[in-house]
Structure formats: structure tokens, C-alpha cells
Design a protein around this nucleic acid. Sequence first.
DNA 1: GTCGCTATGTACGGTACCGCACGGACAATT
DNA 2: AATTGTCCGTGCGGTACCGTACATAGCGAC
Lengths: 275, 275
Amino acid sequence: MPSLHSPKQNHLLAAMPAEEFNRLLPHLELVPMPIGEVLYESGGRLNHVYFPTTSIVSLLYVLENGASAEIAIVGNEGILGISIFMGGETTPSRAVVQSAGFGYRLKAQLLKREFNRAGPVLRLLLRYTQTLITQMSQTAVCNRHHTVEQQLCRWLLLSLDRLPSDSLNMTQDLIANMLGVRREGVTEAAGNLQRMGLIKYSRGHIKVLDRVGLESAVCECYSVVKLEFDRLMSALPKADPDLEAEPDLGKVGFKGTLISNGASSASDSPADANP
Amino acid sequence: MPSLHSPKQNHLLAAMPAEEFNRLLPHLELVPMPIGEVLYESGGRLNHVYFPTTSIVSLLYVLENGASAEIAIVGNEGILGISIFMGGETTPSRAVVQSAGFGYRLKAQLLKREFNRAGPVLRLLLRYTQTLITQMSQTAVCNRHHTVEQQLCRWLLLSLDRLPSDSLNMTQDLIANMLGVRREGVTEAAGNLQRMGLIKYSRGHIKVLDRVGLESAVCECYSVVKLEFDRLMSALPKADPDLEAEPDLGKVGFKGTLISNGASSASDSPADANP
DNA sequence: GTCGCTATGTACGGTACCGCACGGACAATT
DNA sequence: AATTGTCCGTGCGGTACCGTACATAGCGAC
């Protein structure tokens, strides 16, 4: 073991083919990511992309009047700063560290060079970006149709999947900002979950007691995001005939073990479309 | 004039460098897109990408219980089927024609070949994808914080920007599905707008009478999406030093003329929240 | 015409969430 | 021990939207 920290703790970095990984390795810089740190501001220029290892970062969209909502959660499965390789340089979103930890960063310019090669690194990143799009879209629907309690469950599970332990440090006030609701709404929802014995919390410290219970209280949005992530980021079944041999991406997975089918309904498939 | 229809009516196609455009041209197939047609189903495999010219398509996320919400609108400024080049093959969203018209389609395989070249076509498409991400994210926040009436204005303006005329055919019931609210809610909101003299409608036909008035009734989400689109899709200021000379993308614009700054003052916004 | 269908209007109770206010519980500081 | 600040609980009126039900109005088919 070389050290306590390793870039391979980030699943995207770990999934890169050895050659590409080694090319990037000397430029990866380990940085601490304290809670509340703003990786980038809405519209601000990005100088680095970040690969979290032990931290979690929220993508927030902030309205003019200060109201906000989290539209995606990124942890050690992902990357921050996709607009670097998407071509836009900036985005209207704000990235805030939600759970303190570490991560590796890379100068934006180096990633653009990878973009230009259009090799497996880009393909991996674009594929990840699609999982992010799924997360954003599902968040939009969830905001429209589901209760605060359901959304709190979703948020807890998504955060938990990106952490090594079963507890997280987060005040209800901050969670309210993430979900775009009142703090009192979170108090009530969290109180319910605690009364049900699913979680335990006090003064900014939340511990999950019954993960299975949480998964049965959450809305479908959680499993849709999770399953779509797994589908996209698992080893590709076969090389596309049009592309040169696809490098086996290995498996880029969450920690979480989704109970086989959260809600025991007839149509197991999360995306069942009625004809 | 060669014909009534031209691929250049789609702004993305029009923005491609001549060489790339000519390579794709023989494979572009003009197709009618009748209202209600499902371009692809959630999770279904995509065989083509679509470039709308005179039609508008909605990206819908559908929940298990049938409830749905539109997370993006795509018209002649865009493309449908981004998961083809993002690498995922499918998405959990459904694409439905919202306003009848025409479009060009292209076999998925051909676009993947472009992906592999990683040339200006891919860069253009990825940049467009980022505008789509903005639209999705803003929709998520809008769903959380703004009233049905504001969202209806947003929806009308976004749709209008993609149509040649100032009227559209759409029942309140369908709009309700898009916004993810009850039909009655749309009836009430639309009634208000009509009473204000902003629109006129009857039996599925909506005519916008006062576009400026609409823009002062809409939430900020509309202009955020629009301005970000303009920023990303206008001619690139300068070639990135790291890339070979960037092809001038021309201008890929909406039709709409956004009043210089929709809300006259900062705190004009009707959605007030505490700081 | 009149029948039937679709689109729109209206009404009414229920509820989830909001904005606000205040009180108590805990932790760190002095 | 007292103070201060943060975090959480609770109550109360207000409102935007929901679910349901039913009434009207346009419009085509026959």
C-alpha cells in the first residue's frame, strides 16, 4: 500500500485503461475538501476538474432570490466540472462540498487534451455524464411529484452510497437547502423516519439504522438513478463494431446494495412505460 | 430554392462545417413528425437521431404510476437522441412530438462514426448537450419553487421560440401532462393569462397576443435557459489553443427576441424566498 | 338537427407545504 | 455557572395545489 490516499479510490479514475491513467497520474493533485467549500460558483470559470474520493459534492442551482435546489450529487463515483469537456467552460450551477473529505484534481487544460484524443477517457466521461443527466432529470420529476419525506429518503440513500460509513454529518437546515424546502419540513420528515426506527440523529449527525427500511420508504427515483448508473457504468457487454476494441471499463459501482426490488410491485423494471 | 424543406432549417445541421455537413447530407432522411408520435420510449433502443425542423419534441420522464413531467423541449435548435453519442444507447426518458411538423433523421450508426472522428461535429453536439443539461436543471428548480402560472409562461415561451408563428396547437390537458400538474390548474393559469390579455385560446389552439407581457410574467428560468443557450451556441470567441482551429459555428439561435432583461429589477421576481 | 365527443369552466373539501414565531435542548466559550 | 450560539421541535394561519365531481360549450358525424 503506497498511502492512505489513492486516486483509484475514485471509480472513474480506477476505470481508466492503464495507459491513460498513467498519463494523467503525475498531474493528479490530492486536495482536502472541507465542508461548505465552493468548488465553483455559478457561471464561474473552471480551472480544474475534481475527482472526489472520500468527499461528497452537491450540484446546486440557485435562483435570483437565493432559493436553491440540489440537482445532482457527486461522490467517489464521479467527476466535477463536466463542462470542461462538454465544451461550455462554465455552467449556471454551483458545486458545494456536502461532506468533507479528499479528492484529486486535474488542470482543466490536461483534460481538454484528452478530449482531443477522443479516446477511451472521453468515452468513459461522456457515459458518466449521461448518468448525471439521468440524475438531474429524475430530480426534476421527483421535485414535482413526491413528498418531502420520500425525497429525504432518496437524498439519504444517494449520499450514503457515496460514503464508507452509515452516518453523515449534516444539519437539517442544510438538507432543506438541498431539497429546496423549509427546514421545518425536514424536521418533520426526519422525525417520522426516526420514529420509524430508520434513522437516528442529533445536532447535525445522522446515522442510518435500517437501510432496508429506508429503501422501502423511498420513491422510485432512487432506484431509477441507481440502476441506470449501474447499467451505464458496468463493463460494456461488447465492443461496438464501429469502434476499435472497447477497453473493458471494469465496474464502476456504488457501494450500496440495492435490495433486489425496493417496492415489491409487479413490474420490477424501474422504467415501465405503459403502452 | 431547392425545396420547401431543407436540413439547414435545423440550426445544428446548419452550424456544421461544410465538409462534415456534406458527408452527412446524403444520409439525412426527411420524415413527417405527427403530433403525439413517440420517437422513442423510455429505455427503448434508438435507431436514429432526429433533427427537427418545423416540429417540437418534448422529453418526458414518466413515473411508475403514470405521472409525468417534461424535463426539456427540443425544436429546430437541437437534436434528439443524445444518448447515441453520449454512449448509453438508451435513456429513461420518452420523446413525444408536441407540435406536428417535419424533421430529418439519421441512422444512429452514422453518428457514432462521427463520434469516433471526434471532430467539430462532436464538439458541436456536446456543446448543445450542455445547453440541454441547463434546461433540465432549471426545470428541476422551477418545479420546486415556481407557480403553475409562471411555469406555463415559461413553457409557452420556450415552445414559441421554436415555432415560426405566434400560435400553437395544444390542449390544456396535454400541457398539464408536460408540466406535471392537473388539467384544472392549467385551465386556471391559462384563464388568468387570457384575462390579462396575454394569450387567447380555444379548443386546443393557443395564440400569443402579448409576448412582452408574457416575458414579464415568466419566472427567471426562461431567460436563464435562453441566455445560457445563446452563450454556448453563438460563434465561439476564439479557437482553443489546445485544439486545432475551431470551425466557426456560425450562430445557432432561437427565433425569440428576449426583451433586454426580462424582469426590470432584481427583486422584481414574484417568487420570493428568504435569503 | 341531435348525438356524441372532446375541450374547457367551476366548485368543494382535503392536504402538503409555506412563512413566521417562539421555545427548548445541547455544546462550546468565558 | 452563566452566556451565547447552533440546532431542533412545535404551533398557527395561509395558500397553492390535489382529487373528484359535474356542468357547459364547441364541433364533427350521421
